[in-house]
Amino acid sequence: MISSIEANLKSFDLPEDYVKFLHEFDSAVLFRTLRQGGGCSILSPQLVIQYWKGYSIDHPYYIAWSSHSLGCICVDQDRLDSGNGYLTWFESMDPDNPIDIDLTFIEWLDKLIEHEGKEFWIPFHEEEE
């Protein structure tokens, strides 16, 4: 399965932890409720490609979408080997002011679960806790 993921996403430099996740699960929807909606969707390889083509972006690329605050978690390929994490947050309403999360995919996923789905990387969410 890894080879088909890599073949579909050959334009991207994929983080190992994200590839391992895709190998196990393909995609996921976390912390969505029937009454309040929201939640975070970890995109399948097909959706990564669809967003990439649909928005004509080549760098960074989307890997997760938040329905709660309408934004996306992206992999910043320039930071993959930095040792400090490589994720960046882009809010739909303010795409010119991304927030560097400085976590790997698995670190981000662990913290998302630890914070019960709250978007801990967005400054106003830190104040609510």
Rank of each mutant, 00 (worst) to 15 (best):
D102L: 12
M1N: 14
D110M: 07
S27N: 09
Q46R: 14
E6L: 13
E6R: 10
E24C: 11
W52I: 01
G71V: 04
K53S: 14
A7G: 05
L14P: 04
L109I: 01
T33V: 08
Q50P: 02
F120L: 12
A64Y: 02
D26M: 01
S66N: 12
Y55H: 14
D110R: 06
D81H: 14
G71W: 02
D81Q: 13
V19E: 00
C72F: 02
E6F: 00
G37V: 08
D13W: 06
I113K: 08
H23Y: 04
D110F: 02
A64N: 12
H23M: 00
S92K: 13
R35M: 12
S4H: 06
I63G: 02
H68N: 11
M93H: 15
L14D: 01
L34F: 02
P60C: 02
G71N: 03
D100W: 09
S44Y: 06
W108G: 01
A7K: 12
E16D: 13
G39Q: 09
W108A: 06
I99S: 06
D96G: 05
L43I: 03
W108F: 15
V48W: 00
F12E: 07
E16Q: 13
P98R: 10
H115D: 04
P60D: 02
T104Q: 00
D13H: 10
Q46G: 10
E119Q: 15
G117C: 01
W108D: 01
S41A: 12
F25T: 08
G85Q: 05
A28C: 00
Q77M: 14
K20A: 12
G39V: 05
E129Q: 10
E128A: 14
P45N: 07
L34P: 05
Y61K: 01
F21Y: 09
G37R: 08
L47N: 05
L22W: 13
E91D: 12
G85M: 03
P123I: 01
D76M: 03
L109C: 03
D58Q: 15
L43T: 03
C40Y: 07
A7T: 10
W65C: 10
I113H: 10
P60L: 04
E119I: 07
E91G: 08
G54E: 07
D76W: 04
Q36E: 13
R32C: 09
L30E: 02
T33I: 04
D76Q: 10
S69I: 13
